[in-house]
Simulated scan of single mutants.
Amino acid sequence: MTLHRISDWDDAYTNSAYIPGGEGYPDKWQSLAAGFRDEMGRTGRLQADISYGARQRNRFDLFLPIDTPKGLVVFVHGGYWTKFDKSCWSHLARGPLDHGYAVALPSYVLCPEARISEIVRQVADAVTAAAGEVPGPIHLTGHSAGGHLVSRMICTTTPLSGDVVSRIVKTVSISGLHDLRPLMNTEMNNTLRLDIAEARAESPALLEPIGGIDLTCWVGSAERPEFLRQNGLLENLWSSFDVRLSSIEEPGRHHFDVIEGLADANHPLVRTLLAV
């Protein structure tokens, strides 16, 4: 196997420039999410801006199915820990909702106001608060930086309590970043402020998984090579532990459209997340 040495780490983690029409996706997400929130609000199935902490962005939206929830799905958004909030992704709740699950979408304080280690704790607080609203099994999923954050929840150094961890039955990291050290070589680290100690402490690939967890790492086959590499890390590095692991490359999908499967109840991404 020929190994390619990366010399331009900023380019390795650039997505929009390599996706046709990439610059238009944020507006598309906002429009779809706003329409979905309006629909859910009219039917009384949206509980908006539930607080899980003291700061302004410590809020989550909770979408409820028609009947008593079968359990809880938590979706954690991406944006390199520096962009977006819960309002961009509401429409991705549709797939799990159609299967009868409640779906929580949290915002969190972004870098540089917060460090990544602080964001990890915020996400744990959001999961805990959402778990207090909805009983039953918990399914975690997140995209890109959100994939990192949900994977971090199932490491032995998780900030989650044992009671919450015991309810997590499935985690799906979508295009997740599981080793943070390469990001120290990018210009975005001026915002992230990662040092080697924090990168090591918060990289799932450098930590041990909680025994018995069930994790799928999901990526689009048309994503950048560095995201394909990051996707395969946990299946490789955690394979000796008592865990269930799989990695999937969805044909033809890129970094911006790989999440669209969450909006479709019959899509394999939703079925994998819910084990249906």
Results as ranks from 00 to 15, higher is better:
residue 133 E to A: 14
residue 227 F to D: 09
residue 97 L to N: 12
residue 222 A to F: 15
residue 6 I to D: 13
residue 145 A to T: 01
residue 182 P to V: 08
residue 254 H to G: 07
residue 144 S to E: 04
residue 207 L to P: 01
residue 96 P to E: 03
residue 33 A to F: 00
residue 50 I to N: 04
residue 79 G to N: 09
residue 36 F to A: 02
residue 26 P to V: 08
residue 192 L to Y: 01
residue 90 S to G: 10
residue 270 V to W: 06
residue 108 Y to G: 02
residue 5 R to H: 13
residue 133 E to K: 13
residue 234 L to K: 01
residue 43 T to G: 08
residue 12 A to G: 01
residue 123 V to Q: 00
residue 21 G to R: 03
residue 63 F to E: 10
residue 212 G to V: 02
residue 178 H to I: 00
residue 196 I to F: 05
residue 175 S to P: 12
residue 51 S to K: 15
residue 248 I to T: 13
residue 19 I to H: 14
residue 128 T to E: 13
residue 31 S to M: 11
residue 176 G to F: 10
residue 175 S to W: 05
residue 243 V to S: 11
residue 32 L to W: 04
residue 86 K to R: 15
residue 100 G to W: 12
residue 251 P to F: 04
residue 163 D to P: 04
residue 25 Y to I: 11
residue 24 G to Q: 12
residue 62 L to M: 11
residue 172 V to G: 02
residue 1 M to S: 09
residue 26 P to R: 11
residue 177 L to G: 07
residue 81 W to K: 08
residue 274 L to M: 12
residue 15 N to A: 05
residue 98 D to H: 12
residue 87 S to C: 07
residue 104 A to R: 00
residue 238 W to Q: 02
residue 250 E to D: 15
residue 268 P to K: 03
residue 232 G to D: 10
residue 147 G to A: 10
residue 23 E to G: 10
residue 73 V to G: 06
residue 221 S to P: 11
residue 17 A to E: 14
residue 4 H to K: 14
residue 249 E to H: 03
residue 103 V to D: 11
residue 110 L to Q: 15
residue 12 A to I: 01
residue 112 P to G: 02
residue 209 P to F: 06
residue 116 I to D: 05
residue 134 V to S: 11
residue 130 A to L: 05
residue 111 C to F: 06
residue 35 G to H: 08
